[in-house]
Structures are given as structure tokens and as C-alpha cells.
Write a protein that binds this DNA or RNA. Structure first.
Lengths: 200, 200
DNA sequence: TTCAAAGTTGAGGGTGCCGTCAAGTTATGA
DNA sequence: TCATAACTTGACGGCACCCTCAACTTTGAA
């Protein structure tokens, strides 16, 4: 693979060393993002990649472009996996609830995804698209649970987003402190969203 | 008042110009903190006071000392007022709930108080003491409501603190956007904390 | 082998904040 | 009025990050 001629039309093929650097930077960036969130200094990424900061800018142009290239697929995979798993639940409420729990779990365990879900980098356009897509799917969970009578009817998609934003902020502030206790608090939140009729 | 001899023993009295500057800085700092939160650049406070940054450091030494001097009384007043008003409610649950609502309202309307309540400046010691004091009083609300059976028994004081931390983060992120909608969301939260038995 | 085009490098300039200190100014009491 | 301790000033160095660009190195086609 990657033999001569494999380059996409339009993009004027990179020299071999540049291509190698691109890979090294992507790998380093993925590691750094996963460990420390999307705010890692680009200097640090360059260092990890064994490359100068200038090269990083040559290859990617902007921070947003780099995060887009590195994180979009990962984000799409993680988020659509959560959606798929939630879909596997037997009733509208448990689909909604497990969707919320799965996203919160992602936020608790993956700093980079937390930043993405909380929309802290609105200029990374592919990432934004991935999030939009997920929110579209989430709308289904919300509507189904409301139609079913188990989710309070005044709860909006924006409210759902804000649940994630504030959970994300908490995760960022708490970091390792109280790492395990988020699940109980998400439980509180869900209890506040379920209608009385839907409780046993 | 403030006539010669009024200085506290120990503190070696300031020259009149220095005393005036101290007042100008306090006033400017209060304004700036209230408008933009405790993170305002000290440069900005000095400018508003019509004084150089050096003077600000001469008079107060550190940012923490300044925030302590300027905000401790304001914070104590606001927070104890919230406690007092909550105490005026007729039953344990409504005391707890109105306490939470009042604190969240303060967070929504006063950036400086929001920073204080969220403990974003742990080195301002008088402020920390004011918060500790309030949490002590809050413990009463929590315990009473739990004894009464209206607040879920697995809810802890730390959970309460985290409610304020995440509400605070949301307020900081949202700023003016959706300024009025926080009350509905606090309602969701409270619904999640009330026991089923306590609902009508 | 040669050499132009492609790519790399890192010092350097920009921003925004912090906190300091030598030099200059002013209040005060003798 | 004058000496001096008290006070003010703001330029400066430091830090952490951003992004650029002139000088240098490497690739790879001819």
C-alpha cells in the first residue's frame, strides 16, 4: 500500500519525508489529545512527534485542522457506538437513559472526547459535524421517550446538550478526584428527568 | 470618623494618599469583580482606580489578599441572606430547595459570587472561610430534609457542592446566552433529588 | 550526479497576563 | 521650610502560548 500513484487527485502528493512527518504528528497528536484534552500546546505535540513546531504548521496549517484530521474518526466511532448501544435497549426510557449514561461515561474517561462533546472547539468543522449528527440521533431518543410518557415533556434537545456541557465541566474540574462517583450523580439527573408516571 | 488615632494597633498607619489609593482600589476592584468575575486582570483594576499596577501590589500584596478584602463581606452578606431566606420556608424540603435555588440565582446574576461559590480561588482564605460557614449551614438543610424523608438519603454535602460547581460552570460558559433558563434546569435537578414519597 | 522544488527548522515577534524594583515624588513632623 | 520615610510609578523580565519566515537541508526526477 501507499505505492506511487496512490495519492488522491488534486492534492499534489507529499514528498516521502513529509508524509512520514504527517503520520508522526498524527500519532503524537492523538496520544496527546487523549491524555490531556484538545487544549494541549501544539509545541508538545511537535516534541512528541520529534518534529519542529514549524513542520506541524506546514503540514496542518491550524490547530483546528489538526484536531479535525486526528479526532473526527475517533469521535464518530465513539459517539455512534454509544448511539448503537443505546438503541439496543428494550424501551424508550432505557434507550434515552443509557444514551445519557454512555455519553457521560465517555466524558469521564476520555478528555479529548469530553472537549468535543462539550463543543469547546467550535472551529473544528468536521468535529462539529460529527456532534451535530449525534445530536440528530439523540433527538430520536428524546422524542420517543416523551411520546412514551417516560421523559418529561418540557425537556428539550438543548437541555440535553447542557446536561453534557455541565457534566463535561465537572469532569474537567474534578479530573482524577472522585473519578468513580460521576455515575451516581448522573443517576440523580436522570431521576429528575423521568416523569412520575414512569417510575415504579 | 477616621480621625487621627483611629488606626488599629499593630498596623502602622498609612499615609493619607496611600489610604485614599487603598479606597480607590477597593472600589474599582469591587466593580470589576462584580462585572467580570474574580479573574479580571489586576491591570484593569489599577486602571479603573487611576493608579499604577505597582501601587496595587504595594497596598495589597497579592491577588488573593485583594479579593479577600474586597469580597469577603459581600460574600458573607449574600450567602447568609440566602440561608436566612431559605430558613423562612415552612417545611424541610422547601427550605432545602429554596436554598439551592437562591444560591443558583446568585451564581446566575453575580459573576464574582459565582467564582466564590464554585471555589475557583482556594487561596483567598477569608473567602474560603465564608464558604465553609455557609456549607455548615447547608448541612442543616440537607439533614433536616433527609430526616423528613423528602430528600434522597444518598445525597451528600459534597453532592450539593458539586451541584453548585456544575451550575457555576454552566453560568460561566453560557454567560448571557439563555440567561433566564437556568431556573427551569435547577427545577429538573431538584426533581431528581426529591424522594418519590415526597411528591404529591 | 545534479539541482530546483519541496520540506524543515527554530529563533523571533506577538499577546496577555503576572509580579518586581530602581528611580522619582509626596506627605508629614520637627 | 526641610529632611526623610513613605509612597508611587511604569518599564522590565518572566512565563506560556501563539504563529511566521528566512535560512538551511533533503528528496527525487532528469
Amino acid at each position: 500500500m501507499n505505492h506511487p500513484g496512490a495519492g488522491k487527485a488534486g492534492t499534489p502528493r507529499l514528498r516521502r519525508d513529509a508524509q512520514l512527518n504527517t503520520e508522526k504528528i498524527k500519532t503524537a497528536a492523538l496520544d496527546a489529545f487523549q491524555e490531556r484534552g484538545l487544549d494541549v500546546p501544539l509545541e508538545e505535540i511537535a516534541q512528541r512527534a520529534g518534529v519542529s513546531i514549524g513542520t506541524l504548521y506546514n503540514r496542518f496549517g491550524t490547530r483546528e485542522a489538526l484536531t479535525d484530521v486526528v479526532m473526527a474518526d475517533v469521535a464518530a466511532e465513539r459517539l455512534s457506538d454509544a448511539v448503537a448501544r443505546a438503541r439496543g435497549c428494550p424501551d424508550p426510557w432505557s434507550r434515552f437513559a443509557s444514551y445519557v449514561e454512555l455519553i457521560c461515561e465517555i466524558q469521564a474517561t476520555e478528555p479529548a472526547l469530553n472537549d468535543i462533546v462539550s463543543r469547546r472547539h467550535p472551529d473544528a468543522s468536521r468535529l462539529a459535524a460529527v456532534c451535530d449528527e449525534t445530536m440528530t440521533q439523540a433527538r430520536q431518543f428524546v422524542e420517543d421517550a416523551q411520546r412514551d410518557g417516560s421523559l418529561r415533556p418540557d425537556f428539550t434537545l438543548e437541555d440535553l446538550f447542557l446536561v453534557f456541557v455541565s457534566n463535561g465541566a465537572l469532569m474537567r474540574i474534578m479530573a482524577e478526584i472522585g473519578a468513580g462517583t460521576w455515575r451516581r450523580r448522573v443517576g440523580f439527573t436522570l431521576d429528575g428527568l423521568r416523569t412520575e408516571a414512569a417510575r415504579r
